[in-house]
Simulated assay, not measured.
Amino acid sequence: MDLPKKCLGQDSRYTAGSGYACDEQPGIVFQKDQETDYISKIRLTRQFKGNLPDGHYIDLGSLRLKDLFSIYPQLKDDWGSRGCSDYWKFSNDTISFYVKIDPEKQPQFPIDQAYYLEKPVEAVDLVMSCYSLNSDKQDIVFEDTDDPLFFIDSIRVNKNTLKVYDPSEIASVTVYKDSNAVKKMGLAAKNGLIYIETKEFAKQRYWNYFKMKSSQYAQIVPTIESNKEVQYILNKRVLKENSEGDLAAIDDSTFKDLRILTKKELIKEFGISDKQYGVVITSDVPGNLYNR
């Protein structure tokens, strides 16, 4: 789906391009890990009817994008796609949904989201978490403690898992306390909720978001790697290292404007000559910044 033949690279978590299926489990394809005999990805096709790991029942034969957003409202702004892919991808670290891109729909950016709401979800991937098989990661075991709930990149982890991350990998840490935590995650978060995003995860989020807001941005930053060619300026502040958290925090409640500067304009306005483009963003400060 997101890694067809014309793509370079692959996901190291599973063996791409091969799988195992049987008549007793229609609509399910199993793919194994590259280094072990574990099954690290399960693909669900249009023949699948049943419950996802979180308990949601789906019938992929009739599931439309609008139905997906009803089940998972947090995915409605998460339009992602590799530059070589034929599908829009809606995902977190362990589950991905795919909707086929219509190549006749022009321009592709900004994305005409209403147009795709009636389109079918073609497949679902259930992928083993990045943390699962790495030998340097702790086994994730949850016990009844007085600790807050910990999440890294939308995946719940235990306190021990935090020890294997270097501070330089972290983009942002958000702490929810008391009733704010309970509103987010229920009584399980009565001792607090700590949400951590890595820089790579944050970078993926803001790249997807800005592509939706500007067709010009989508053209000059067609891949995540293209970020190295641009300089981000947020509210007249030139962003240097460790800016991923600031950019990923922007959403529809704070976003105001995005404009692109040519290299000549970037030099004239900000004196920056080592980047090809400037991405100038104007936004409000999140309203709940000091209320967590």
Rank of each mutant, 00 (worst) to 15 (best):
G55T: 07
F30S: 14
D11R: 14
N92L: 01
R46A: 13
Y87T: 08
R64Y: 01
Q25V: 06
C22H: 12
I95W: 11
Y98P: 02
S40M: 08
W88K: 01
S91P: 01
Y57K: 12
L52Q: 04
K76A: 12
G61R: 07
P53G: 04
L68A: 09
E24H: 04
I42Y: 07
D11F: 12
C84R: 10
R13P: 11
D23G: 05
S91C: 07
K89M: 13
R64S: 02
D93P: 01
L44G: 14
L52M: 05
Y14P: 07
D11N: 15
D86S: 14
N92P: 03
W79G: 08
E24I: 12
K49V: 06
N92E: 06
R82L: 14
I95T: 13
Q74R: 12
Y87I: 08
Q47Y: 07
F30W: 14
Q74W: 02
P26D: 15
R82Q: 05
Q47M: 02
R64P: 02
D93I: 03
P53L: 06
T15R: 15
D59Y: 02
F90V: 03
L63D: 01
Y20L: 13
K49Y: 05
L75C: 03
F30C: 11
D93Q: 13
L65R: 01
L63F: 05
S85Q: 05
K49A: 03
F90I: 13
Q31Y: 00
A16P: 13
L68G: 06
T94A: 04
S18W: 08
R64E: 05
T36V: 14
F90R: 12
T15Y: 04
D54F: 09
N51S: 11
S18P: 00
N92A: 01
D11P: 02
Y98C: 09
L52I: 08
S81W: 04
R64D: 02
G83N: 10
F90S: 07
A21Q: 15
Y57P: 00
R64G: 01
